[in-house]
Amino acid sequence: MIYAALFYLIAGLTVFCALGVALSRNVVYSAFFLMGALLGAAGLYGFLLADFVAVVQILVYVGGILVLTLFAIMLTHQIAEVEVSNRSVGRLPAAILVIVTGVGMGLAIFRAPWHTAPSGEPPPTTYGIGEAFLGPYLLPFELASVVLLTALIGAIVLSRRELRD
C-alpha cells in the first residue's frame, strides 16, 4: 500500500516535471523542472531494483549534464533580461503530432503481449553489472571510453577560439 503510494508520488513528480519542461515559457524554469524529472526517473530506477543505474543517473545527469545545461543558459542569456523565454512556434501542429504519436504508442503498450513476470535480480546489482562490463560487454565498454575522450577533445576544440585559428 505504502509502496504503491510512493510509486504514484514519484511517477507523478516525474510526469509533472516532464510536462513542466515542455510547457514552461522560461528556459531557466525548464532546466529546474528537468532536474525534477531526472530525480524522479532515478527514483523509478530504485523501484525497479536498479540501484547502480539510479546512482549513475543522479551523478551523471543531475550532477553533470544539468549543471552544464544551467551554465550554458547563464552564459548565453543576459540574466537581467526579462524575456529569457522563447517564442514557441507551431504549438498546435506539435500538439497534434504528439497526440497522434501518444495514441499509437499507448495502443502498442496495452495491446502487445509483454512478458510481465518480475524477474529482476535483487540489489546490489553492481557485482553483476561489473562482471558484464568486463565480460560480454568489454568491447562496447572500451569504445565508450574512446567516445568520451573524443567528446572531451571535441568540446575543448569547439569552445576555445584560439585553438581554431
Binding site: L19, V21, S88, A94, L97, V98
Partner: peptide, 24 residues
C-alpha cells in the same frame, strides 16, 4: 510514465526555438 515523458520531450523539441531548450 515513460510514454508521457517521451511525449513531453517530443513536444519540447518541436516547439522550442531555443537551442538549449531543444537539447533538454
Amino acid at each position: 510514465v515513460s510514454l508521457i515523458v517521451f511525449l513531453a520531450g517530443l513536444f519540447t523539441v518541436l516547439t522550442r526555438r531555443n537551442a538549449i531548450g531543444i537539447l533538454m
